[in-house]
Write a protein that binds this DNA or RNA. Structure first.
Lengths: 218, 218
DNA sequence: GTTTCTTGTTCAGCCTGGTGTAAGGTTAGG
DNA sequence: CCTAACCTTACACCAGGCTGAACAAGAAAC
């Protein structure tokens, strides 16, 4: 699925982009409405993630433009906790769903999957690597037909690794996606989670690149 | 089920809303046609209760608009005793059923149930999962042949879970469908209802996805 | 109108299992 | 061998989830 993310905050935007990428979708990230307009005019997106708190405050206008020109692309809007009025106006203007900041990325993933399913997009790209089958849409992993249960953190690490499948992911990158900005961690947590993943998914699933990070075969 | 109630009379409107709520559906109550239009444009209602005597325009116009734009949402219209002509025009304009004021709330409930049954999206009304058989049309559940009685809210939660069978439903999504828009609830109501469902339907019927929500096996 | 029963909501305490940390073992590279 | 990097296991802590019970609000029965 091709997703257009419209979000001006660098940190949050990056986190969202990475997370959506890791669920197997393609993401274009725009930080300004004009760019978003151009993108929407030229690329057939299947989902739009629209922040309504843009500096110029005109995220709603974009949504209304879309609908008034007959563009029915599914739109999920994000608003702050206290902006109930704007949220309602957003829904009234044609948004399909909403997320209240600060929202859990996992929850966002679930809602994206729901919208994708509702609109009949192809939501579940299945990935197989080293005998492990991963259904990103349904959060299901199986090793040789046997279902494996992953915890939230383990899943987060797995997603991060898969987002750059075939490439190397550094420890600090994994750490960043585990602990939302600022929460410094004083331990070898990443190593521990990689270890736990190997225990559940098999020893060969993740390769260690000494001094650099980790890698999953494409 | 999500119901849009369009009724300008405060007393009657409140009574209807409460009654429909008590049958386990979510209700949005609009008192003006403009608001109703906006709501219909944004929220995927499964039923509309439409009063034809509104102050700011003819309810019939709204109905005709809906049908002319291809919106097939079931509509039940309400009219006064003496408005036979309007009532007929309503049916000709695409209404699915009608109620004559003053009407019995219980009868209204029955009509709603009938319409819901007729239009209930699921073509295969019988669902079986984890030893539980569910007849959505007749609102009947049985566990190992034994019939189970569910309350309205319990049904609402169960329906929400079944609507995405095999997928994950987050707590906040369940909350949204339990409490018509905006009513933020400060409690663990969802957990309580899941607990009660498990008590009646068996422990394994609903799986908990920690930190995210719940899931019913496909 | 009063009583009784049913249903919805909230709260508090319990419990499970996820999480971070540290300690000790193992491997790669010089 | 020696060191640094990495792996694994154990363990204590605690957030999140579960559930029984109390309370409130209707609905139904009388």
């Amino acid at each position: 699925m091709r997703v257009l993310l419209i979000e001006d905050d660098h940190v949050l935007g990056g986190a969202i982009r990475d997370h959506v990428l890791s669920t197997g979708h393609a993401v274009d990230w725009m930080q300004r409405l004009d760019d978003a307009r151009l993108a929407l005019a030229s690329v057939p997106y299947e989902l739009v993630l629209l922040d309504l708190n843009l500096p110029d405050g005109r995220g709603l206008d974009l949504l209304k433009e879309l609908r008034s020109t007959g563009n029915a692309v599914p739109v999920i809007i994000t608003t702050a906790q206290d902006q109930v009025a704007i949220r309602i106006e957003g829904l009234n203007s044609g948004a399909d769903d909403y997320l209240v900041k600060p929202f859990d990325l996992a929850e966002m993933g679930a809602r994206i999957a729901a919208v994708a399913r509702r609109y009949g997009g192809n939501p579940a790209p299945e990935i197989t690597s080293a005998g492990v089958t991963i259904d990103l849409g349904r959060r299901a992993v199986s090793v040789a037909g046997e279902k494996a249960n992953l915890t939230a953190r383990e899943w987060a690490v797995l997603e991060r690794l898969l987002a750059r499948r075939g490439g190397i992911v550094t420890k600090s990158e994994i750490e960043d996606s585990l602990y939302a900005f600022g929460a410094e961690v004083e331990s070898n947590a990443v190593e521990v989670y990689v270890s736990r993943l190997r225990k559940k998914l098999g020893r060969d699933f993740v390769q260690t690149i000494r001094g650099l990070g980790y890698q999953v075969n494409a």
